[in-house]
Design a binder for these strands. Structure first.
Length: 869
RNA sequence: GGGCGUUUAGCUCAGUUGGCUAGAGCAUCUCCCUUACAAGGAGAGGGUCGGGGGUUCGAGUCCCUCAACGCCCACCA
């Protein structure tokens, strides 16, 4: 940060323009290290930003440009306030999107069974192959080869992203980047996991999980979404074992009849009260199940009594757990009915029925069982079609099933009231911008219904640093995990060998096996503060940057990214990971739909930057208030571009008044009432902008600055022009020029966070160093220069000149048409103020005579007869 | 079903403890080549502030209620 220092020689271009600013100043900032983090600064002199790592599995869209600009304006403001800004960039190249992209891009398929092939060459991308070869089936490659390909492709994508962000003018320190799949991130993720495990926060459990049958992968609560799907109620009779009396239930999942473990009704339901504790026989399979009572059973729904299956939905899981029912699962991991006849089905009819369903996909199985039930007369009436919400993996295509499997979990308060309360309290320690976003956090924390499932049955991700001993039969001893040592991280248990074993012990009886799963992508993303600040590896950096100042992010991932980051920081550091959360809204298309790739309504940011310039695009982005969804509007970009051009021209005027040799005037030469009045208002503006920025409201700072600036151009510059053109020996001219220099310098710095390119360009005409390292305008300096400046003088001068212009315009005369007589009547206070600036008003309105009087407000204008005076 | 947010000019939006006649830009119309800027400038027209009710001397602003839209959450048999 530095005090503005005018250069000895100025160079104000004859015809300034916006062309090429991005590449010229981008290169300058890179060469001179303008945005380099100064790590000699202590924590209280640092502003550290937990930049969201964009997913590197496609292309950047306007939404990125939008929200990253918001953060950048804050970063630039803090830098000008003298903070050393810690502004790293991460790339999220870990996880399913990358896997999918690599599969399609190179035409490969990961097969974890295959051995690593060190000679495997990077394939020609599918799109670049001859047509006839494009449809070939994917080549199967080992996990390690697959990961290598992921690294190759993401490295290329990251270059493109960086270039775009540079063109946009993000003041990121590009020497500090990380990728969520790189060794550093994997090490952090594994170290954090090991510590969670050591403290008992990470644990394994064999439990029902939501399962995507296409990905063959477990899915966490945070990754769910509901979709409205057609379904149908099927009415089935269960017969009491004693009397054979039928009890009717309704179900949308008849294919799960074989997984039925009980019926359940509300404890107060008079219809079923007499039957609690009795058993009934399932139709078709003839399995005996008990009738139980539970408050969650809703007497209003269906027939008021439900069949509990393991597992049809999450309510089944609750009933199963709380009523301690047996597990009878019938669906296998690939989403088909299991082939073997379940051991609890013993009747001949039941076995025959099962064989009709075995191996069928869920939908086919449903059709088949409906047929069987119809044939046996056990389907009452026709199925009643309904639509109902069904849980899907947000990236999945088929409804989730609930299967039982062994998975890793991380405690997050979902089954622990105290931890939940602690995390809820953490949410209240954080400053939310805008504040109402905290509600979403509260909603989420209070609605958790289980711990965080962190294991995924995928390949491209961070492995669990864990192996298991195998017993004499070759079965893993899950209760005796072998943990990696922290010093050996990162490890890949599929490749690395635990201490005390050799590779020949892998997957043989009495040997070991690696944990096959990878971590949820959020298990890494939740550690971005630790990753960026060098936790556990660079204690010095960590002490200067953590806890961080701000997490900027979008609102729809409060439940995932923000919450999970909070969990990790709370568990590991017993603190909030940042002091502020700055939540950005979405970019909506003109139909007010969220812009997204799948809807095909995405505009590529590059052509916007080329058409309007980075400053103009940033102007549009920064005009949106924090947290507000905003319509995509190229019109706003045009206005931003105009603003940038206006800045060039107004600056040229203010800086060219001294003639050939530049003269730097002193604030003390500002003696004219109009100049002081303007500066008085300018001081007010700086104060407002500062308060707005301190409250993370960049949009307000921009709006105020812009409004001031246009008025400054249209009124002040016109009023001051005649006086400013007088010779340098005129005190009024010197006052005007000093005032112009001070106000221009101030305005440029106020605009610098928003329009970094054009302000840097203008700054370079007459100031040493980068404007982005210049100190934020000093209110007390402005107040001192403004001295007795009276805002009324500025206001009334403005009004009188406007009235004069109106008279000329209405008379269809040019603005340089002279005025013979200008008569202003107003209150004594305003007349007194006007008298202090009367000459400027007279000159600006080209009035040959001006008179004032106290009375009712009016401005009388008599135009001259002749335009040529 | 619960919660949060939004609703102000044709369009995009300001309007911060309630306070003079509700603002800006774009768009529309009129005028002006003026030595910073015609990629400009000066003006004009355009709004019962989503509906209804209330508090108040005074409501775009506070309270109640309804509606539309968006989002988040929910145990969806």
């Amino acid at each position: 940060m530095s005090t503005p220092t005018p250069r000895a020689a100025w160079s104000v271009p004859e015809k300034p323009d916006l062309g090429g600013l991005e590449s010229r100043w981008g290169a300058f900032w890179e060469e001179s290290g303008t945005y380099q983090f100064d790590r000699s600064k202590n924590r209280d002199e640092v502003f550290s930003i937990d930049t969201p790592p964009p997913t590197v599995s496609g292309s950047l869209h306007v939404g990125h440009v939008f929200s990253y600009t918001h953060t950048d304006t804050l970063a630039r403001y803090q830098r000008m306030r003298g903070k050393s800004v810690f502004y790293p960039m991460g790339w999220d190249d870990n996880g399913l999107p990358t896997e999918r992209r690599v599969q399609n891009y190179y035409g490969v398929q990961c097969d974890p069974q295959l051995p690593y092939d060190p000679n495997f060459a990077v394939p020609v991308p599918v799109a670049e192959r001859p047509k006839e070869e494009q449809k070939k089936p994917p080549v199967h490659i080992s996990r390690r080869n697959f990961i290598e390909l992921c690294n190759v492709l993401t490295a290329e994508d990251e270059k493109v992203f960086e270039q775009l962000f540079r063109t946009l003018g993000l003041s990121v320190d590009w020497s500090m980047t990380y990728a969520t799949i790189d060794d550093h991130c994997r090490r952090v993720a594994q170290r954090a996991f090991l510590r969670n495990f050591a403290r008992g926060e990470a644990y394994q459990a064999e439990a029902p999980v939501l399962w995507d049958v296409d990905f063959k992968c477990a899915v966490a609560q945070a990754e769910l979404e509901d979709r409205e799907m057609p379904g149908a109620y099927h009415r089935l009779p269960f017969r009491l074992s004693t009397t054979g009396e039928p009890i009717h239930i309704e179900t949308t999942r008849p294919e799960l009849l074989g997984a039925c473990v009980a019926l359940v009704a509300h404890p107060d339901d008079e219809r079923y009260k007499p039957h609690f504790g009795k058993t009934v026989v399932t139709p078709l399979f003839g399995v005996e199940v008990e009738i139980r009572a539970h408050e969650l059973a809703d007497p209003e729904k269906g027939s008021g009594i439900a069949m509990i299956c393991t597992f049809g939905d999450l309510t089944d899981v609750i009933w199963w757990r709380e009523l301690q029912l047996p597990t009878r699962s019938v669906i296998s991991e690939d989403g088909r009915m299991q082939r073997e006849v379940p051991e609890w089905i013993t009747s001949d009819n039941g076995i025959a029925a099962w064989n009709d369903l075995a191996g069928k996909k869920i939908k086919q199985a449903q059709e088949a069982i409906v047929k069987l039930l119809q044939d046996s007369g056990e389907l009452i009436g026709d199925p009643k079609a309904i639509t109902h919400p069904v849980k899907f993996f947000e990236k999945g295509d088929r409804p989730l099933e609930i299967l039982t499997s062994r998975q890793w979990y991380l405690r997050n308060g979902g089954r622990d009231q105290q931890l939940r309360q602690e995390l809820s309290d953490r949410g209240h320690q954080l400053h939310w911008h805008p504040p109402h976003m905290r509600v979403r956090y509260d909603n989420w924390v209070n609605g958790l219904n289980g711990d965080w499932l962190v294991s995924r049955q995928r390949f491209f991700g961070v492995s669990f640093p864990v192996w298991y001993r195998l017993d004499a039969e070759g079965n893993p001893l899950y209760d005796q995990p072998i943990l990696a040592e922290e010093s050996s991280l990162p490890v890949d248990p599929a490749v690395d060998v635990p201490t005390g074993f050799t590779e020949s012990d892998r997957d043989v009886p009495n040997g070991f096996t690696g944990d096959p799963d990878v971590m949820d992508t959020w298990a890494t993303s939740s550690l971005t503060p630790q990753i960026a600040t060098g936790w556990g590896e660079d204690d010095d950096l960590f002490s200067r940057t953590f806890p961080m100042d701000v997490r900027p992010q979008a609102h729809e991932i409060i439940r995932t990214w923000l919450f999970s980051t909070m969990v990790r920081s709370h568990l590991e550091h017993n603190t909030i990971p940042w002091r502020n959360a700055s939540i950005s809204g979405w970019v909506l298309d003109p139909d007010r739909k969220k812009m997204s790739k799948s809807k095909g309504n995405v505009v590529t940011p590059l052509h916007l930057l080329e058409n309007y310039g980075a400053d103009a695009v940033r102007y549009w982005a920064a005009s949106a208030r924090p947290g507000t969804d905003t319509a995509f509007d190229e019109g706003q970009m045009k206005i931003g571009r105009r603003l940038a051009i206006k800045l060039l021209n107004a600056s040229r005027f203010a800086l060219n008044l001294g003639g050939e040799t530049p003269v730097v005037y002193n604030d003390s030469e500002i003696t004219s009432a109009l100049d002081r009045a303007m500066l008085h208002e300018l001081a007010q503006l700086v104060e407002e902008a500062t308060i707005a920025f301190d409250g993370y409201d960049y949009a307000r700072a921009l709006e105020r600055t812009e409004a001031f600036f246009w008025r400054y151009c249209d009124q002040y510059l016109e009023l001051v022009k005649a006086r400013a053109y007088l010779g340098d020996d005129d005190a009024g001219a010197r006052s005007a020029r000093a005032s112009l220099q001070l106000s221009l310098s101030t305005l440029l710095r106020l605009f610098a966070p928003f329009l970094p390119f054009v302000t840097e360009e203008i700054w370079s005409w007459w100031q040493e160093g980068s404007i982005h390292k210049a100190e934020w305008p000093d209110i007390s300096q402005l107040r001192q220069a403004a001295d007795d400046g009276n805002p009324i003088a500025y206001a009334i001068a403005d009004e009188v000149v406007t009235a004069a212009r109106r008279a000329k315009t209405e008379a269809k005369r040019s603005l340089k048409w002279p005025i013979a007589q200008l008569t202003v009547t107003d209150s004594s206070e305003r007349i007194a103020a006007l008298e202090t600036v009367l000459n400027d008003v007279k000159d600006a309105s080209l009035a040959s005579s001006i008179s004032v009087a106290v009375g009712d407000t009016s401005v009388a204008v008599v135009l001259a007869d002749d335009g040529a005076v």
